[in-house]
């Protein structure tokens, strides 16, 4: 069965190796910078690419639970790394915006943060990811207790929805890509609303 093959294939993969994989998109960007492969507006390309990787990782993170529940595929031991990487790319996205795009024009950055819905929404998503990244370690789970930790990490859901909305709000007209991301995010959140079957009662 495919599921078992995947489980077998992933057995030697250690969670930290996900980080090695996660460096690749950034590495490709750096290579593209030095080979002049980013087009005439490299700043926008970098900004969009790191933002999109963050969004992709958020979607990947949201897939873990439904895959286990509906397909029996257990990738949960990679979830923390995926989440932390999503935060890292979201942070890069924010930093590129502040440095290369807005070029430290703090008054404009400040105005954007209070006036522009797409900036507000994107920044809110980033702020939600921040405590999740900080508590993505075993010590935090022990300190907080599993229940409280899980409650905190439900912030993933609004953060994902806001990240998808952020993309839709910044484009002109209605290109397909942001709508596809939003559709995927809402579908993955919707799957979580499907009630789990009640435990079967023993016949009396």
């Amino acid at each position: 069965m495919l599921r078992d093959t995947i489980h077998r294939g992933l057995r030697p993969v250690r969670p930290w190796m996900v980080y090695t994989l996660g460096v690749l998109p950034a590495l490709l960007l750096v290579i593209d910078v030095f080979t002049g492969n980013l087009g005439v507006d490299p700043v926008k390309t970098i900004e969009h690419r790191v933002g999109e990787v963050a969004l992709q990782l958020i979607v990947a993170g949201l897939c873990i639970t439904p895959l286990r529940r509906f397909a029996g595929l257990n990738l949960i031991r990679f979830r923390r790394q995926i989440g932390v990487l999503a935060f890292v790319y979201a942070t890069l996205h924010l930093l590129v915006w502040i440095t290369l795009d807005l070029q430290f024009r703090w008054s404009e950055i400040g105005a954007d943060l209070v006036k522009r819905p797409y900036i507000i929404v994107g920044f809110a998503a980033f702020l939600m990811l921040l405590p999740l990244a900080v508590t993505s370690n075993n010590a935090a789970i022990r300190r907080m207790g599993a229940a409280a930790w899980q409650r905190l990490h439900w912030l993933t859901y609004p953060a994902a929805a806001l990240a998808g909305l952020h993309f839709i709000l910044l484009v002109k007209a209605w290109p397909a890509e942001p709508l596809i991301y939003m559709g995927a995010i809402l579908a993955l959140l919707g799957l979580r609303l499907i009630p789990r079957a009640a435990p079967r009662r023993m016949p009396a």
Partner: peptide, 22 residues
């Protein structure tokens, strides 16, 4: 007069690569 979704206060001059000035 800003665009309702973004500021029009400044612009990025395309063409100087990574360090195109705003």
């Amino acid at each position: 007069v800003d665009h309702p979704r973004w500021s029009q206060a400044s612009e990025r001059r395309i063409g100087a690569g990574l360090f195109a000035s705003r």
